[in-house]
Simulated assay, not measured.
Amino acid sequence: MGHLSVNVTGDQALVKKINKSLVLRTIRGASPLSRTRVSQLTGLNKATVSNLVAELCEDKLVIEAGPGESSGGRKPLMLHFNEGAGCVIGMELRVKEVAGVLCDFGGHILQEREAALPSHRPEEVLETLIALGRELTGLAPATPHGLVGIGIGVPGMVDEDGLILLAPNLGWESVDLKSGLERAFGVPVTIDNEANAGAQGELNYGEARGVRHLLYISAGSGIGSGIIIGGELYKGARGYAGETGHMTIEAQGRSCSCGNRGCWELYASEKTYDDADLPARTTGGLTRLAAAGDAVAAGHFARIGEYLGIGITNLINSFNPELIVIGGPLSEAREWLGEPLRRVVSERTLPYHKRELTIAFSKLGSRGTMIGAGIAALLAYLGEVRVRV
């Protein structure tokens, strides 16, 4: 009988990488904390933790400061995730413009810019993204790691390789922005659906820290959903989950650009501005008028809130989440959307689903997708490794 050959060196390197990622993730999520606390939280022995922390300090990803609280004896030095170790760029591709932020490793916005789209032609969109990225890159401070990645949220379906398969609001099928951006900047580029990116922003820096079952609703030029199940982003069998803006809420409703009829986003997004007789045609313009007492603007937001509530009721009954966060540009109109939305959900949702449910508007607002896209790029750089058992 032959002997089983095992690549011991490779196995040890993988175990070390996994453990190092685990230690870094623990420090990033709970800093400041002591080495002893890292050992307790990870289950790794103190010697292993000390060795890995030393490497992370050498990598400038962790810094020591102190002293911390002690139960007796010498006070321990505390470990902090170094939010100033480097930068990421997060961008959102919208229907009419591109918006971008330069963030540190803590998700804090250092610079913010946006640019109008000259057209929806992929090559012109790519040029606009590159120009915006170069402007932000030129504003980046000197850091140990520099710019480590770029993340982009897009309004459509994206496969696991970052290929934009379908973006109905842009008229796109099978568009590759990733390779052109990586050539231009020389750093890895991550591309995902804008609602998935927004959900990442909420999980890391918004309303949803520590939440296991989350629905993030991105409401703007369309509607998309980022679905978190058991603390993990749910993408479906092929990565396309979350296209809730195209679920039917009016069986014989209006025709949609996706080919369906009666889609949710035709009644509960900024698309409603196209057909209505309104005093303004943008969310910003309407919120300013509503705040000044304009009844037409306030009434329109109330109708959008009711339709948002109808779609959210369907999602609550389907997924039984503990938290729903509403983000995107329409979250800026929370003052007029909130009451009718919650009323409809209260009237229509099955009673058991409502017992442990919270509905909140994102504090990140219209920046959630950009911040989340940047965080996706950061997590890819930090080499988050998840072990399945």
Results as ranks from 00 to 15, higher is better:
R209P: 05
E173F: 10
E339I: 04
I130C: 04
I227K: 06
I150M: 07
L166T: 02
I324M: 04
T42H: 07
G368W: 01
K271Q: 08
N204C: 12
T128K: 00
V296P: 01
Y205D: 04
P321Y: 03
I130V: 15
P141H: 05
P188I: 09
L61E: 01
A295Y: 09
N260D: 10
G100Y: 05
G259A: 12
P141I: 07
L147S: 02
E347D: 10
G153L: 14
K235D: 06
L341R: 01
K363M: 03
H213F: 07
L364I: 03
S50T: 13
E332M: 13
L378H: 00
I228M: 04
T287R: 02
V38Y: 08
C103Y: 05
N320E: 14
E194K: 10
G86T: 03
S34R: 09
Q111S: 05
L177D: 06
V95W: 04
V101A: 06
G245P: 03
N317S: 13
C258G: 12
K178N: 03
I217M: 00
T128M: 01
G29Y: 05
L4K: 01
K235L: 07
G262T: 13
L350I: 05
Y205M: 07
L4I: 15
H108Y: 13
G206M: 09
A295F: 10
I324V: 15
G156C: 11
G171F: 12
V175M: 08
G106P: 06
S5F: 14
E335R: 12
L110D: 03
N45P: 02
G151E: 06
L165V: 07
E270I: 12
S221C: 07
G293E: 14
A99E: 04
L93K: 01
A85M: 03
N82A: 14
T272F: 10
G90S: 13
L102Q: 10
G327M: 08
S50N: 12
G224F: 04
D192K: 11
I229Y: 07
L203A: 04
L266N: 03
E207Q: 15
L177Q: 05
P122A: 08
G226Q: 01
Y205S: 07
A297F: 13
S331K: 05
G239A: 04
G151C: 09
